[in-house]
Design a binder for these strands. Structure first.
Lengths: 168, 168
DNA sequence: ATATATTTTCAATAAGTTTTGAAAATTCAA
DNA sequence: TTGAATTTTCAAAACTTATTGAAAATATAT
């Protein structure tokens, strides 16, 4: 397979992959393009390579920057802004975990804590099932929360090394 | 907070939560409703409680069954079909992991393996960055794959017990 | 067999999301 | 300043996905 074809495949698949994870197709594609670009590239480069509008590139690069996955890079002597993605996949993964935890898991756990304190007779079947379910999810979520915190703080080699021992 | 209000909150939040995970809102809401229902319920119950059409309920319960999260239950003497969700959150989580791994991670790893074998000069900057990026993702994905396999096979108490030791 | 209850399907429609593109805002050099 | 280059914004349009509802299929009782 030629590089050009492989690139196109990767960008397209990464985009499709993203949609399964609540990330919009274009944002994932721009990310893919930046991941395989050895040097920082401009809005116009992205527009051209993905055949999308300027506004679209602008919005999605902004989102990628908000996610901490992409940086604006200033190149001396150049008027245009350049963009560059973090290439270390471990860092990419921990950054995504960190953000999603903050945006999704933490608020959900907060809500579950509130919901568990409903008034009502615990002997009532409906009340019991509700409390049990909420409790179960909260407990599980709490465990996940802890594990993810360790991952976020950990360094890749330490983490994978420890896992290897763990799953020996 | 009263049970009725708490239920509504949970269903609505679980639905919103689902959309961040590539699961459609209604499917997640039906799942939430089933999770907090002590006894199996019918299509009509779901239609009524969530105010959605019969077709919608039918499609989404079928998807939940495909995902292995919900079962059809036959109740002797009843003409209608009843639905019931797996209540053990650990089982729910491992089932979801199992399915998503099969549907998303495995095909992605397969593709990455192909893409890594492109022809071209490894000294070319473009080629090098492409191969490095793909290689990095493949390696990371491979590790994740192994960890998830262990989780899927594991029993909750064993898994959490081991994690506790791990994160002592 | 026939009637009735129940479930499934799927084309049409509605709702939601993403993309465009041109105008407005900003930046920067001269 | 002024004006050209560049980025940002956002309403309208295009696209995608979810939902409805009624007709067809299936299951069950009499």
């Amino acid at each position: 397979m030629k590089l050009t074809e492989a690139k196109a495949q990767f960008i397209s698949s990464w985009g499709a992959f993203g949609t399964h994870w609540g990330i919009n197709r274009t944002m994932a594609q721009i990310h893919a393009l930046l991941l395989i670009s050895p040097d920082p590239i401009t809005q116009d480069d992205i527009m051209e390579q993905l055949s999308i509008s300027r506004g679209n590139v602008n919005m999605n690069t902004r989102d990628l920057i908000d996610w901490g996955l992409v940086d604006r890079v200033l190149i001396p002597g150049e008027r245009k802004e350049f963009f560059s993605a973090e290439k270390d996949i471990w860092k990419v993964a921990t950054q995504i975990i960190k953000e999603r935890k903050k945006r999704e898991l933490d608020p959900m756990l907060k809500l579950l804590n509130q919901l568990e304190q409903i008034d009502g007779d615990k002997k009532d079947k409906e009340v019991k099932q509700f409390v049990d379910t909420i409790g179960g999810i909260r407990k599980f979520g709490g465990q996940a929360d802890k594990v993810l915190d360790v991952m976020i703080k950990a360094d890749e080699s330490w983490f994978l090394g420890s896992l290897l021992k763990f799953f020996k």
